[in-house]
Computed example of a mutant assay.
Amino acid sequence: MSEQKIIPARNPGQVAIAIVLLFGVGLLIYLVISSPFITWAAIPQFILDETVVDGIKLTILFTVLAMVISIVAGALLAMMRLASNPVLVNFAGLYIWFFRGTPLLVQIIFWFNIQLFIPSINLGFVVLDTNSVVTAFVAALLALSLNEAAYMAEIMRGGLMAVDSGQGEAAKALGYTPVQAMLRIIFPQALRVIIPPIGNQTISMLKTTSLVSVVAAQDLLTRVQNIYARNFLIIELLIVASIWYLLMTTVASGLQYLIERRLGRATYEAPAVWRAAMRILRSEGSKG
């Protein structure tokens, strides 16, 4: 019997769309490159400019600090959402509702202007000027962290709920406290579900930090704006900023891929605590 040759089905609609897309992208690239109003020679001069590099360092610092704080706060909020105490549940729900429901830009401006209605902070033994405590850096970090914590809480909650409820019962059978069961049994297993969206949020945070330029927090975009306010090379400096944002998000995406691949490569096996608990439960059942 002769071997049958498989001929893929033709799809002229997809071919037409692809041609239109290629033409549109090519035209856009040509219009940008051929524009006489862009000084391309200025872009390499500012790529490694000291002011720009300082802005990059601060952008990375904002991202790292905001993500660390939001992950910790998000984990606490997620556990509060899953608690049996109605006060904890409602507080966490109200927090998530408020910070997800108001624009981040408004929150940044709010924290920056908090001294308008709280001019000083009285700690009893000392009175601090709010302006000296909530600087532009602190205001931006507070806004980024508290806002991101609301999203992290839902990510964490989804990951924790994805773990089989029997894991908690097995830990309880072995005498684990609820906190021990959460930290040692449930949370490590939830990481498989939690890590990918955390990676996406980190990449998003690298770009979201650009919003802090509204309070002159000296991130990458703020430094670029300061430069083009003097030399009027607006498009050129924005291209420089875009190149760096693309580079940072590309590196972050690569790291996320490596972490996800490592997690996905591991062969799942029921944890030792689960197997031990099952043996205990079976032995007690046989005695009964």
Rank of each mutant, 00 (worst) to 15 (best):
M1C: 10
I6G: 01
N11T: 11
N11K: 11
N11F: 15
I17Y: 10
A18Y: 13
I19N: 14
L21C: 12
L21Y: 07
G24T: 12
S34Q: 13
I38V: 13
A41C: 02
A41K: 12
Q45S: 03
Q45E: 10
Q45W: 01
F46I: 00
I47L: 15
D54A: 11
G55K: 05
G55S: 05
T59N: 14
T63M: 08
V64N: 06
L65T: 03
A66G: 03
M67Q: 03
S70R: 12
L76M: 10
A78I: 01
M79N: 02
R81N: 10
P86I: 11
N90R: 12
F91I: 11
A92P: 06
Y95D: 01
Y95N: 03
I96C: 09
R100T: 06
F112D: 02
I114K: 11
Q115R: 13
P119W: 15
L123T: 00
G124P: 03
F125G: 04
V126C: 00
T130P: 13
T130K: 14
S132G: 10
L141T: 05
L141D: 00
L141Q: 13
L142R: 05
L144F: 12
L144Q: 04
E148R: 07
Y151L: 03
A153H: 06
G158V: 07
L160W: 02
L160F: 06
A170G: 04
A171Q: 08
K172F: 08
K172I: 03
A173S: 15
T177C: 08
Q180D: 13
A181L: 04
A181F: 00
L183Q: 07
I185P: 00
I186P: 08
Q189R: 04
A190I: 01
I194F: 06
I195D: 00
P196Q: 07
P197E: 11
N200G: 14
Q201Y: 08
I203M: 10
T209K: 14
S213A: 15
S213T: 11
L221K: 02
L221P: 01
L221T: 13
V224D: 05
V224W: 02
I227M: 13
Y228M: 04
E236T: 08
S242R: 11
W244A: 06
M248H: 06
T249A: 13
T250F: 15
V251R: 05
S253N: 04
L255S: 00
Y257F: 14
L263K: 03
G264A: 11
A266Y: 06
T267N: 07
V273Y: 09
R275I: 14
I280Y: 11
R282M: 09
S283Q: 14
E284T: 06
S286T: 12
G288Q: 12
